[in-house]
Structures are given as C-alpha cells and as structure tokens.
Design a protein around this nucleic acid. Sequence first.
DNA 1: TTAATTCTTGTAATCGATTACATTTACAGT
DNA 2: ACTGTAAATGTAATCGATTACAAGAATTAA
Lengths: 330, 330
Amino acid sequence: MITIQKVAELAGVSVATVSRVINQKKAVSAKTREKVEKVMKEMQYEPNMLGRNLRTSQSNLIIVMVPTISNPFYVKIMKGIEDAALKEGFHIMLCMTDSQYEREEAYFHLIRQKLADGIISLDPGTNFSKLLNGSKKYPIIQCCEYSELEDVPYVAIDNKEAAYKASKHLIQLGHKRIALINTDEHYIYASHRKQGYLQALKDYQIPALEEYMLNVELNFEHGQRGMRKLLQLKEKPTAVFCVSDILAVGAIKEIMRGGYKIPQDIAVAGFDNIEFSYMMNPTLTTIAQPMYEMGAEAGRMLIQQIKNKEEKIENLLLDYELIIRESTMG
Amino acid sequence: MITIQKVAELAGVSVATVSRVINQKKAVSAKTREKVEKVMKEMQYEPNMLGRNLRTSQSNLIIVMVPTISNPFYVKIMKGIEDAALKEGFHIMLCMTDSQYEREEAYFHLIRQKLADGIISLDPGTNFSKLLNGSKKYPIIQCCEYSELEDVPYVAIDNKEAAYKASKHLIQLGHKRIALINTDEHYIYASHRKQGYLQALKDYQIPALEEYMLNVELNFEHGQRGMRKLLQLKEKPTAVFCVSDILAVGAIKEIMRGGYKIPQDIAVAGFDNIEFSYMMNPTLTTIAQPMYEMGAEAGRMLIQQIKNKEEKIENLLLDYELIIRESTMG
DNA sequence: TTAATTCTTGTAATCGATTACATTTACAGT
DNA sequence: ACTGTAAATGTAATCGATTACAAGAATTAA
C-alpha cells in the first residue's frame, strides 16, 4: 500500500508537504506541488481515509434511518439526500429500523462510536429523547415528521393544510360520506392530517362519523383490510382519503375486488405521490410532497450542523401540491 | 470523550487489558474483566471506531452499488444484504450510480481509500475490468447479473430457464403471437432471457418475428412506449413477455389505455415479482426471483471474501418461481 | 548590506485503538 | 522451598494521516 510517507520519500519532501498538497493548502510552492502531484499520480496514491478520519475525528458518513425501504415514498428522498451529501463529500449509510427501538439504538451507537457524523431520520416513530438519553447533542435532522416536544430540527410540509386540501377536493366533487384511513395518531403527521380532514368536514358542514375513521398500519395489506371494513358498513362511504399512497393502493385493490367502480362508486385520494400512483389503474389522486427536495434539504441541513455544531438550524416547511388523477375524477 | 486510556486509568489497568476485555479475549481474569466492565459501563465508554479501523485496516462497511433505487426490484435485495451484513457487524453504504461510469469509479475509490471493505454491485452494467484497471483484486460480488468475461463471483438465477418457463406458460395458454419487451442485450441477463424466450418458441414451433422483439430502457415510460409500438402493428400480439415487472407495468398501462382487456385481448407476463405486482390491477404474472435470499447470499459471500481474501468463492444460482396471476389468467 | 517580513518546508506530536513481545504473577509438581 | 509452566498483565510500537510549531529560505524595505 502506498502511504503518504512513501510519497514523501519519493518526492524528496516531508509528509507535511504532501499532506498540504493533498488538502490544497496554499503554502506550497508551485514547483514542489507539481513534483508531489507527479509522484502521487505515478504511484496511484490514494489517501487512506481511516488515517485521516482518526486524525480529524470525522467519518464523512451520515446515517439515514428509514423504517423500511419497501415504502417507495422513501426512494426519492434518499436520492435527494445522497445528492446533497455527495456534493459535500459525504456518503450515506442506509439503516433500516423496521421501527424497532433496538435497531435504532444500535444505529445511534454508530454516532457515539464516531463511525458516522450525523443522522437523518425518516422514521416518524423515532424517540429521540430516549435515544439521546440526556447525552450531549449530536447532529440530527428529522425528515417528513417532527415532534414539538423534542428539539430536533426538521424539514416537512404542512400536513394539516395538505390534508385539508385533499379533503376539500373530495367534498367539492359532491361527496358527503368521506372516510379516512389513517395510521397511528401518535405520529404527528398522522394527527395533523386527521385535523385537516376534520377541519374540511367542519367547514363544509359535514358531520364527522366515527365509523368512517380508521387507524391502521402503514402497508398495503392494512389498506385493503381497512377498506374491507368500510365496505361492510350499511352506509358505505362514497370517497376515501388515505393518509398514504400505499394505503390507497390497498384500498383501491379492495374496492375493485368488491366489484365497485372508481371513482363512480367510490373515489380515492392518497398522500405522497409515490411513483406507482401514476402507473396504476386507475391513476391515483394524491398530495405530492417534494420528496427529492425534502431529502436534499435534510442533507444540506445536517451537513451544515455537522460543520458548525453551534449554529441553530431553522426548521423548514416546503410546498406540497394536490395532484388530481383518475381515482377521483374518472 | 472517553477513550480507552481513560478507562484503563480509572480501572487501574493498562490499555491492553481494556482492549482485551472489549474484544472478548480470554486472557483476562474474571476479577479484572468485571472491574473494567464496570468502569466502561459507568463512563458510558464506546470504543472509537476510527481508531480501531485505522489499526485493523478494516472499516466494516460494504458498498452496495445500485443503478437507481427507484426500481423496487432492488428493495428486498437490499434488505437481504443489510441483514446479512448486520449479522457480521458490517454496515452498508448505499451508492446510486445512475449507471454512470464516473459515479461507479468514484465509489470504487472508496475501497482504495479503505473507507469500505468490499462492493456488491446490483448494477448489471458495471464494467469491472475497466474499474479494477489491472490493480489487485478487491472483494466484489455481483448480484443478479454476471459476466463470463470478468472473474467476479456472482449470485443469480438461471435467467434462460426462467424466461423459457414464462414463455412456455404463455404458449400453453394458446398464444401464438407473443411479443418480447427486452432491454439492452449487452446485459447478460437480458440476452439470456431472450434466449429462453426464443428457445420456447422454437420448441413449440412458433416462428420468432423480429417485429415482436423490442429492446427498450428499463423503466415505466419505456414499457409504455414499447407497448404502444406493438399495438400499432397490423397483427397485434396476443401476449407480451416483459423482462422486468416495471416494463410490464408500463405495458399494462398502455394496453388499458388502448381499451383492450387483460388477459382476454392481451396477456402480460413480467419478471422480478416486485411488490406492486400483486397490488396492481390486474395482478401480474411474473417470475419471482428470491430477492431477499439473493441479497443475503451476496452479503454472506462478500463478507466471506473480505475475511479471507485467498479463498475462492463459488458462484451461486438460486431457484426462481413462476407466479401465475390475473394478467395471464383472468 | 542588514533587518524585518513573508513563504516554504520540516520535525514531531497526535488522534484512539490493537497487538507483539516482555514481564510479572499464580500455581502445580517435586 | 524451588522450579517450571501457564495465565495475566503491561510496555511500547504501530496503523496513516493532520497540524502546531520551529526553522530555514526568499523577498522586501531601509
């Protein structure tokens, strides 16, 4: 292996000088720089990051914690994060938690162990105060979710407003019996989306019925199961607002299985604008979160925090968009 | 920051002893071990990985190179890799190449720079000989694809056989006009799948028509576009075999847009068994690759190679399965 | 020419672990 | 009690970079 020592020796300079050349410090004469660079190229020298990392106490790695990569919602966010990271010379470690606390804890260790410089959490369930356990602050950004309690900077959208907009869309199509398939409301985003839904109903004098509001786990099967329940009601809803596309996909599957037409019999709206929402039949009306940008911003914010730990990071609310497709307007 | 020195001092032993406790070496008396462990716990000591990594010249990181994470085909594979890695104390770095050579090269640097110990490539287009550039071997595993030319161990399935089976299924349903939507045949897997398709046609005395065989890029839009072309033929095919589910999804979209019925007018078979294949309407007949296992095996093989660089790694062909769903049998 | 100043370069400490080798301790056998 | 062996522990080198500080070289000002 070619080390900085070997390069220094071959170039007839000290390791300090080689290091200066590597790190683009200006205090090197053109002649020397040239000489060193020539040797580096000839020897195909590559600095050993392990040495550098130890010395600088930085790994240039950031952890991205995601509950499961199987929800396509996360895909573009990850891409955004990676691009932002790459731009600053960082790389990302993919960590799937399955929403298990032990996993999250294990990944948190990596920061304590200096293997990573910071964390972006895409997992809405992350319990930071428990994880941090009173210890000093580490660079963390929460993406797509936030908790007022914990003091972790976030990037997200205004979920209440967005849900309001989606619900209003259904109402304005003439629907009066609108169901909500939600997920665990201890996630702030879920509770906000419900608030938006309720507000819309209220503003348009539509009574909110308990039996139209379901809480299920966030996956396809539970979307199906939730819809099945709704279809068994005497007064079936004529529209369903799902707080996640993946739930909407399940709901649609179940509606079609029951022989109903979308949107004539039942209209469906989702949330997230995953790629499949425009590939499926019918295409899905949904709220588009700016996923790539959210990821990119989260990455940018985290790296800013890593570079300057003192600095206070501002939270960020990005724009969303209602995308109307076949599932509500045939 | 608590270092091993501080722990040693507080426990009244040498750093060597603390290190032995950390690494579970047996040459420590029960009494001493207990004492050291107590101090470590009290101080919440966490070994600094940067120090360890430099000394052992291992990062315990593996690179997973993926063209784009937006093809859900990769999702379960990644999960398999991560689980296998975690079991051995490794973590994964996610690297998206967009199939760009420069990106791949940049990631390869990470190995030369010791930032990662090995690579699993999910990118069928990776040009290893160019990347390696005659330099000594690094631990690499190719997953889902292989090239006979380059001497890189792989885990995959028998693509020719699998494609044969899918094509035969369509033939046995009575189809005579069967199209193939393929992708760039310089990917071995693509060329093998075509071979399987051709072999099936031949075995059942069905002529292979040039105009039924398309090569497109591997994404939804090109699936649509390919199908559109097929629908413009005078003699439209009655069945289509797509070498990737994502293409099949596009094809199905286009078929329905044209007002045709699936599978009555046109049957569709895919390849990969991505999650959406059973969520969509109609559900998709496809070849299921054992994605999780492939990932897990690739992870296992890579780590084996990292731990013992001399050892010759055996290639692995795993089982596949034809899953028949609505898109071929209403 | 000399002194002051600025640029370049080198020396050696350092980051935090692991580990070869040396040394001490414990204990069994006689 | 003495010796030999095994077990436990310690000392110090080492991994490959960065960087504070020192020192030498070059330039400028007088």
